[in-house]
Nucleic acid binder design. Structure first.
Length: 872
RNA sequence: GCGGACGUGGCGGAACUGGUAGACGCAAGGGACUUAAAAUCCCUCGGGCUUCGCCCGUGCGGGUUCGACCCCCGCCGUCCGCACCA
């Protein structure tokens, strides 16, 4: 009797409904079992789920289903990162309200996710644009404001004068706004900031505790925070060269040891001293203007020539009052790092060297490599930046440069200038405070009020939420909140006088910096319920793309600390385990005349000599291009719906995890998907063919079968698959399932209802194990199979089987035998055979005898249960 | 420039802590079943040779070791992150 093919189209919706009705995936906060929180980075509702999402959520789902089966109270929620610019762009382009656009997208994407059969707790779903959510975010904001973690200060921003808005650095392309194409201006603007730098040290040090994070991400965060230890040094200006009222220049250096190699000072174009000096120096003013115009994008910096302009100002060397150095304005000095001023030591820094050569400044070698000769050591085209011994440095000569650092620091700390020490030690960070003001509509309103009499006044908590008005228009550029006729006009909560609301909204990264905590009590009146959050958090396994390695993860780490300070929870680190998954990539295709072609516009032919593509519409050959991340522009996309339509969700889930390690990119191919689908049918057949033997419905002639072999195969598979899932090695888990099915298929063929009870029991257990270990990956197929064998309840609710340790080891093992390190044969021997027994057995092997040729072996190395090596 | 990761068949990749290299899958070739196709099943599948077996082989060149994809030294290549950070 031929088994009917498994039909995902009817099966999958049926089981999805069964799970939903059983409310299997809803986590209870008062469930006494140990908690396990698995979270995938929530999606932006851009319109449709793409294949990258499905890979991400499938990984999380495998973990969630596995942990649930292992007896954990699993929290696996889903929501929407729903504020952001695309909604406003859609509003401008398509005349649809951002709110409507967003919620429509959410509705579509929710349905798509549901088709994937993900074991999500939908009862906790929220979108960050829900009033309920941003209301609590405003509460949090005020709490952090009270704790002094929110400040307002002016900073330089990229200003698009056509769209009337601030642009992020990423939105400035070749100095122009990405939308308007207008030349971007640098403007000083008052902005709201979170004081992330307050935690800089802690955020850096705690990276060491994140031992379940990828090393790569930890490194990126370390570099981003960018701690350096150095010295702030005040240099005295030579009075007759100094602008009115200026007497010193403060610089930051990490190399005070090279102070005797100094030959110039360089300050940023925006440095106050530069501005002052330019007041009666039109040429300098022009140079400063030029520096400002040239942008700060990486591409510009790459090619830009190092330029300087002598201000005429001179400084005195702190260790030699007769030694004066020129002060240049230089285009490579950044105002917002250190003090915006440096001393240049050409012999010890390549950039300073280039600068010195260009302007004819002295180059004094002060550090030389170990073993070099001080009399002859010279600097040519390359600066010497490594460690070494001090030369040409007076009292430092002969010291290591590390000792010299200390010596200079301690001397300058004691030396006085204008009544204060010349230098102080200073730890400096690359990390800046987090500017969160956005001049946009579709974001969380910042709950602040500007009163002319009282200044900045927070919105009283009882007046929250500050709701976004619905009646806005996007016909004109700029912030609709700002030009709304009534919204911003309020009474001052303090004095009752006329005042205006803050019209900036928050950076959407704020929304995603605490959503993982909100999921623990998504309907609470307070942002977080501390007892509940403390119980669930930290997230045990967080899964998402490497593109969030810095910003989102760093902001969330900051927020967790900030929320702790405000008493909302009691932990520092939000994510215990982090996993960054690779992308889904696809080949690209181009037609003969150079148009991009979508995968469904070409036909692929596999031949003995290779693969070729034909454009279906024209019948002409197409070229197969490189693997790329799926993108609309290259048309190399495959939609999750199409895959589910033709193969079902289980195929998509299985294939997505099967070939490549999860942290690497996976290539989507039709052949691969078809292969995954074939495997589904194979499992389906295997189970169905085993049903008569298992359930004993039909009697057939007895076939002996091998109960022990069946049980061993099953328990070994159970062990290795469990281990692979635990370590998120999904591709390995799948390979082991394949291998198990190969063995099981051989062992079960012929086993029937007439086979000995012992064999039938082993078969029953083996099939059950098979179904359970595939269930996290292919939950629908597993349910259907479970039903076929008369399994109790839903397999999604079944406990994970425990492997029997006695069944995963063999009594007899096959030991590879090497001669001089090369394998020459095998030895079958009892697993517990001792060294002597193994040696004796090995010496009795024919190929060993002939290799020895009568002589005694020089040595026999026995690695128990691994290998034997006979050294001849 | 600085920092990091990686390099294994036609392809994706396995290989536990230094112990049988190429598991598992895809593609390809051959065969069975079929009127035919699909589906399914079986066999082959790193290279070479004097083919019941032997030699070579994990980017390249050395080294350590009884034994190296794995450890060490030196190269080459690819990818990623940061990037005028004082």
């Amino acid at each position: 009797m031929a088994t009917e093919r498994y039909n995902p189209r009817t099966s999958e919706p049926r089981w999805q409904k069964a799970w939903e009705e059983a409310r299997l995936f809803e986590a209870k906060n008062d469930d006494p079992r140990p908690t396990y929180y698995v979270l995938e980075m929530f999606p932006y509702p851009s319109g449709r789920i793409h294949i990258g999402h499905t890979r991400n959520y499938t990984m999380g789902d495998v973990v969630a289903r596995y942990k649930r089966a292992k007896g954990f109270n699993v929290l696996h929620p889903m929501g929407w990162d729903a504020f952001g610019m695309p909604a406003e762009n859609a509003a401008m382009q398509n005349k649809v309200h951002p709110k409507e656009w967003t919620y429509q997208n959410i509705a579509v994407m929710r349905d798509q996710l549901k088709m994937m059969g993900l074991s999500l707790d939908w009862s906790r779903e929220f979108a960050t644009c829900d009033v309920d959510y941003y209301h609590r975010q405003q509460m949090l904001f005020l709490d952090l404001y009270e704790k002094g973690l929110v400040t307002r200060k002016t900073s330089k921003v990229n200003w698009d004068p056509v769209d009337n808005t601030v642009l992020a650095n990423e939105q400035v392309i070749d100095g122009r706004g990405w939308r308007s194409g207008a030349l971007v201006e640098q403007r000083e603007l008052a902005q709201w900031f979170f004081r992330i730098t307050e935690f800089a040290d802690d955020l850096l040090e705690a990276i060491d505790t994140l031992d379940q994070w990828p090393e790569k991400v930890r490194l990126m965060q370390r570099n981003w925070i960018g701690r350096s230890e150095g010295l702030l040094v005040r240099w005295e200006l030579v009075p007759e060269t100094a602008p009115q009222g200026e007497s010193e220049l403060k610089i930051y250096t990490t190399r005070p040891d090279t102070i005797f190699g100094a030959s110039f000072m360089a300050i940023a174009a925006d440095h106050p001293l530069a501005r002052k000096a330019a007041e009666n120096n039109p040429e300098l003013a022009a140079f400063i203007e030029e520096c400002r115009r040239t942008g700060t994008s990486a591409a510009v910096l790459e090619t830009q020539e190092k330029k300087g302009f002598d201000t005429g100002i001179r400084v005195r060397h702190p260790f030699d009052p007769n030694w004066t150095l020129p002060v240049y304005v230089a285009n490579f000095v950044l105002m917002d790092y250190g003090t915006g001023a440096i001393f240049g030591c050409p012999s010890g820094d390549q950039r300073d060297l280039d600068f010195a050569r260009k302007y004819g400044l002295p180059v004094i070698p002060v550090v030389m490599p170990e073993g070099a000769d001080a009399a002859t050591f010279e600097i040519g085209d390359e600066a010497y930046t490594d460690e070494g011994m001090m030369i040409n440095s007076r009292f430092l000569d002969g010291m290591s440069n590390k000792q010299a650092f200390e010596e200079v620091a301690s001397r300058l700390e004691k030396q006085m200038l204008n009544g204060a020490p010349v230098a102080e030690r200073k730890v400096n960070f690359r990390l800046r405070d987090w500017g969160i003001s956005r001049q946009r509509y579709w974001g969380c309103p910042i709950p602040m009020i500007h009163c002319e009499a009282c200044g900045i006044v927070p919105v009283p908590k009882q007046d929250l939420p500050v709701k976004l008005p619905d009646d806005v228009d996007f016909d004109k550029p700029g912030n609709p909140l700002d030009r709304h006729p009534t919204w911003k006009h309020v009474k001052c909560p303090k004095c009752g006088g006329a005042a205006t609301r803050e019209t900036d909204t928050m950076d959407t990264f704020v929304d995603s910096s605490w959503y993982f905590a909100r999921f623990t009590a998504p309907h609470a009146d307070t942002p977080i319920i501390p007892e509940v959050a403390n119980r669930w958090l930290p997230v045990d396994q967080y899964i998402g793309g490497i593109e969030h390695a810095i910003l989102h993860l760093l902001y969330s780490r900051f927020f967790t600390r900030a929320m702790r300070r405000a008493g909302h929870l009691n932990l520092d680190e939000p994510f215990k385990g982090l996993f960054t998954q690779g992308m889904v990539v696809h080949e690209t295709y181009k037609s003969e005349d150079g148009r991009w072609l979508a995968p469904n516009e070409v036909r692929i032919e596999n031949t003995e000599t290779g693969r070729r593509a034909i454009e279906i519409a024209t019948g002409k050959p197409a070229t197969i291009g490189s693997l790329e991340k799926m993108s609309k522009s290259k048309k190399n996309t495959v939609s999750p719906e199409d895959i589910i339509d033709s193969f079902g969700a289980d195929t998509a889930r299985w294939y997505m995890l099967s070939d490549s390690p999860p942290e690497r990119d996976v290539e989507w191919t039709d052949d691969g998907a078809a292969g995954a689908h074939r495997f589904i049918q194979r499992v389906w057949r295997l189970v169905n063919e085993a049903v008569p033997a298992i359930t004993g419905v039909a009697a057939k002639p007895a076939y002996e079968g091998d109960a022990a072999a069946i049980s061993k195969a099953a328990h070994k598979a159970l062990k290795v698959v469990s281990e692979a899932i635990e370590s998120l090695a999904f591709n390995r888990a799948i390979a082991h399932v394949h291998a198990f099915v190969n063995v099981l298929q051989g062992q079960l063929s012929g086993v029937s209802a007439g086979s000995p009870e012992e064999v039938r029991a082993a078969a029953r257990e083996a099939v059950q194990i098979l179904i359970q270990i595939i269930a996290p990956f292919m939950p629908h197929l597993a349910e259907e199979c479970w039903f076929q064998i008369g399994g109790e309840g839903l397999v999604a609710a079944a406990a994970w089987p425990e492997f029997d340790p006695r069944l995963v080891v063999d009594d007899q093992i096959i030991l590879p035998v090497q001669i001089n390190g090369k394998k020459r044969g095998d030895l079958t021997i009892a697993r517990d055979a001792d060294q002597a027994a193994v040696e004796q057995a090995v010496l009795g092997l024919d190929f060993v005898k002939s290799a020895l040729n009568g002589a005694a072996p020089r040595k026999i190395i026995v690695v128990p249960q691994r290998i034997v090596n006979v050294v001849v």
